[in-house]
Design a protein around this nucleic acid. Structure first.
Lengths: 264, 264
DNA sequence: CACAATCACTGATCTGCGTAAGTCCACGCT
DNA sequence: AGCGTGGACTTACGCAGATCAGTGATTGTG
């Protein structure tokens, strides 16, 4: 399977209906927020209006980089992006990957200047959300501000889990954990299943995300493959022994879940 | 200087005036939020009302631990706390330290169950904020929701910087960066100066925060001391060569700053 | 006052992982 | 066809930092 097909997967497409019928399926982003705050049709509509101009970005060319001011944020419709920080030595640390349905660049808007880079991993389609529109929406439909706060907290929980992994897990555990988390997230938005998913990341990117060298990523992936746990080849991750992987990684997916709206 | 005096430092005390005079100094927390959203006196008052019962916690006994449900959050008045996650192997990773004026436990409220532990480093005084009160306040004074979103983003930026450090900086750089960040934060709330600050952390805690062994923390601190950069002894950090330290750590404090309210 | 804890600090040994330096595809150019 | 580029994958070597196993000083406590 070709990498590019990941970005073109039909299920990635965001629904654009402006209909106000209560049961209409809205964007994956709206569905995600709805999991925390039970949204009224009016709030749903406000969310849909937020989706501004649809933009396309080519793979591998930064959408945003450190120090840029007056940025917009984006709601990812298709493709993958990563956010990373550069260090003076020329190395980088990838902080997170965003997949379809994810919100990105919130921090770049709230602080007026971007504190990290955003690079599309594949070709990307995203709706631009202008800073002003976002803040307006918050003041007109205040519960959406709380909903976005919740979404941001969920992102923070992922960063925290990532931090824990890099700080206290060894390379194999870390890699296993990463693949499991990615799989769980993809499953939530309807990409991938319990047994595998398409993944456009190179071993270099994995290395930059996991805080290790690409060489070592390769070694670890081989070990995991030879141990019959997972294979990651030609852009495809296949999970062969989920239980063993979960045990190895000490994976607890509760931080990705939510058990129904907190705000009625 | 005794450790305990850190917690008892007079400047740590939160101001409790309920006066609605516009120019009253409010809590450090209110001042922090005011840096992002220009707060009206009414919003200030709502914030002050948020401070619920004042509670005291002894050092070293978890206030909150993973899996607890229906938690409150807290506004720290005096003392230090750390938030950490436990791994199955028995090791832990400290994610962040909170100092007076910081808000803690937001994630434990938004997700209904705590995803991390919170342990007082010293004896601690904090105002409890009940989950319901917080959400009420958001709906009644919506701009406060946006302000808290901003504060949460700032915390996330710190976690990100921490992640970058553990992933891509070596032990000396990481330690230097940590001390600089801590110093900068303490200076913002009026504890400590450019040349030093009181710090109640043991080398074990530093190790758990920096993702290294306490043994190695000790060696690194010795190197930094012998190099004439910083000394960290008997609960006191003295910065002797700020420039060299900033250069070593590749420290850029912009992620801690804010340049005036974004929301008028 | 003895005791158990907790902490700073040290030296010796071992190892996970980075670095350097490659090979071997599969591809999109011209 | 001939070249350049980017990714997967190796092997050999060396080092940063973990682990183990201590010492001694300073606390708080029954």
């Amino acid at each position: 399977m070709d990498r590019a097909t990941v970005a073109a997967h039909p299920r990635l497409d965001v629904c654009h209906h402006r209909s106000s019928a209560l049961l209409t399926l809205h964007s994956p982003f709206a569905r995600k927020l709805g999991a925390f705050v039970a949204l009224t049709s009016e709030e749903m509509a406000a969310l849909d209006r937020l989706h501004g101009r649809r933009k396309t970005f080519p793979a591998r060319r930064d959408m945003v980089h450190q120090g840029m001011t007056n940025q917009s944020c984006y709601i990812l419709a298709s493709g993958w992006v990563c956010s990373y920080k550069l260090l003076s030595g020329g190395t980088r640390q990838i902080v997170d990957f965003q997949i379809p349905g994810d919100f990105l660049g919130l921090r770049s808007v709230l602080f007026r200047t971007a504190d990290h880079n955003i690079e599309p991993v594949t070709k990307v389609e995203a709706s631009e959300v202008l800073a002003g529109d976002l803040l307006d929406t918050f003041s007109k439909t205040p519960r959406l501000a709380t909903a976005v706060l919740w979404a941001a907290s969920r992102d923070e929980a992922m960063v925290v889990e990532h931090l824990v992994g890099i700080g206290r897990r060894d390379a194999r555990e870390r890699t296993a954990h990463f693949l499991l988390e990615l799989g769980a997230r993809l499953k939530l938005v309807g990409l991938g299943t319990a047994s595998g998913f398409a993944c456009p990341l190179s071993q270099y990117m994995l290395g930059d995300a996991l805080g290790m060298s690409a060489v070592h990523v390769n070694r670890v992936l081989r070990e995991l493959r030879e141990g019959g746990l997972v294979t990651f080849q030609r852009g495809q991750v296949e999970i062969h022994d989920l239980d063993a992987l979960v045990a190895l990684a000490d994976f607890d997916k509760s931080y990705l879940d939510h058990d129904g709206p907190l705000l009625k």
